[in-house]
Simulated scan of single mutants.
Amino acid sequence: MRKTIILCAALMSSLAFSQTKTDSIQLDPQKQINAAQRLLSGNYASAVTVGAYGEMLYNQPNGQNGELDVQRLVLLFGYRFDDRTQFVTEVEFEHVEEVYIEQAFVNYNAAPNFNVRGGLMLVPMGIINEFHEPTTFNGTERPTIDNVIVPTTWRELGVGVTGRFNAISLGYQAYVFNGFKSTEADGEGGVNGKLGGSSGLRGGRQKGIKSTINTPNLSTKLDYYGIPGLRLGFSTYFGRTQADDDVQEFDGSDIGIAMFGLDARYAYQKFTARGQFIHASLSDTEEYNTLTNSNLGSALQGWYLEGAYNILPMGNRQKLFAFARYETYNTHADVAGNLTKNEAYDRTDVTTGLTYHIAPGVVVKGDYQFRSNADDDSDVTDRLNFGIGVWF
């Protein structure tokens, strides 16, 4: 028992000295980094680094009972083997009942502004999939487009390169990943589909869990930061979905994907703004829907615009942002064959509220969402949300 106590004390002591330093609230999008980038930044006191971020939310749909939830708690661990080689991992607990590995990769700095990475990594599409720590975005919930069009948190196994061309203010990322899993055998000689009309590609994420691969997929992103306060992103993703060995010969077992995204973030004094556009073209969906009895659309598309203003004086350590976001997204932007567009999948959310940074790394949020869709016979419930987020 005494040895156990001594061991625990030594471990806690080592972690205390290996914590990453607390960052101030960084509003300049050109200087913002996510959790993995922070562990890789060299801002540590020893080879071992630790951190975490988490969100506790309250959602109250109109006319229904509210829900309280520890939506996620993510533990961050990093290790520096030498000046060029590092390992980063994120362990995520969702709703206090599910455990996932969100990231786990080795980063090798092969040359200045040139890194080689391999492992379980985030697909660089849009803003939120890479920058989803609760202190980095307005709104209790992440933008819905980053749930049904970009299936955040979207991560897969692969290998790639990343770095910057500082002379032209351009950052780059390029990866080869395994793709979405579209079908699997149902055990009775049939085929189950994992993709659908309402949720798009989300059900096909493999998340590094015994992932199937028969055709690799290519993901790229360019970030331009040559104008003060402005960061522009252009993302692409091309490839095909994956299927189990015993069903991949069926016509329609997989589909083709061509996705691209444009995003922008801007900050000037007390004002910040961001916007995003995502379009995905899916091929062979008619055959896929016939095989799986699904209603997957042949095009997914969405966009949003958001503006925020800090109500408190510029010199204050705390910040209180009033914000508004308009987003529209459609998982039946187009359909193939005899499939009829479902107007309920053409959705619009208007979110307005407050984001209160009470200390670096601690945020309290409250907002109201006006939600609707294009189907006159469908009723979408508006929602009141509150939340607490931390990141250290």
Results as ranks from 00 to 15, higher is better:
4 T>V: 14
4 T>W: 09
4 T>K: 11
13 S>T: 12
15 L>E: 06
16 A>R: 02
16 A>V: 01
17 F>Y: 15
25 I>W: 05
26 Q>V: 15
31 K>A: 14
34 N>P: 10
38 R>C: 06
44 Y>A: 15
47 A>N: 14
49 T>P: 00
55 E>L: 13
61 P>D: 04
63 G>N: 12
64 Q>T: 11
75 L>N: 12
78 G>T: 09
79 Y>E: 09
86 Q>D: 10
96 V>A: 14
96 V>H: 08
98 E>H: 13
101 I>N: 06
103 Q>Y: 09
104 A>Y: 08
105 F>G: 08
105 F>A: 07
107 N>T: 11
110 A>W: 05
112 P>N: 09
118 G>N: 12
130 E>Y: 04
134 P>Y: 02
136 T>Y: 00
140 T>Y: 03
140 T>W: 04
141 E>R: 11
145 I>P: 01
147 N>P: 00
161 V>K: 00
164 R>S: 15
165 F>K: 05
165 F>W: 13
166 N>D: 15
168 I>Y: 09
170 L>C: 10
177 F>Q: 01
177 F>K: 05
182 S>Y: 04
185 A>R: 03
186 D>Q: 06
198 S>F: 14
208 G>Q: 01
209 I>C: 01
217 N>I: 06
219 S>F: 10
224 Y>L: 06
237 Y>H: 10
240 R>D: 12
241 T>F: 05
242 Q>S: 12
246 D>F: 07
247 V>A: 12
248 Q>S: 11
248 Q>V: 13
254 D>M: 08
257 I>G: 04
263 D>A: 02
264 A>N: 02
266 Y>V: 12
269 Q>L: 08
270 K>W: 04
273 A>N: 02
278 I>D: 08
278 I>K: 03
279 H>I: 06
279 H>P: 02
288 Y>R: 03
291 L>P: 10
292 T>M: 07
294 S>K: 08
295 N>M: 01
295 N>G: 03
300 L>Y: 07
306 E>T: 04
311 I>G: 00
314 M>F: 10
315 G>W: 03
332 H>Q: 10
339 L>R: 10
344 A>V: 01
347 R>V: 11
361 G>N: 06
363 V>M: 05
366 G>N: 03
370 F>D: 09
372 S>D: 15
372 S>M: 04
375 D>R: 05
376 D>Y: 01
379 D>E: 13
379 D>V: 15
381 T>D: 11
382 D>R: 01
383 R>H: 01
388 I>E: 04
392 F>A: 09
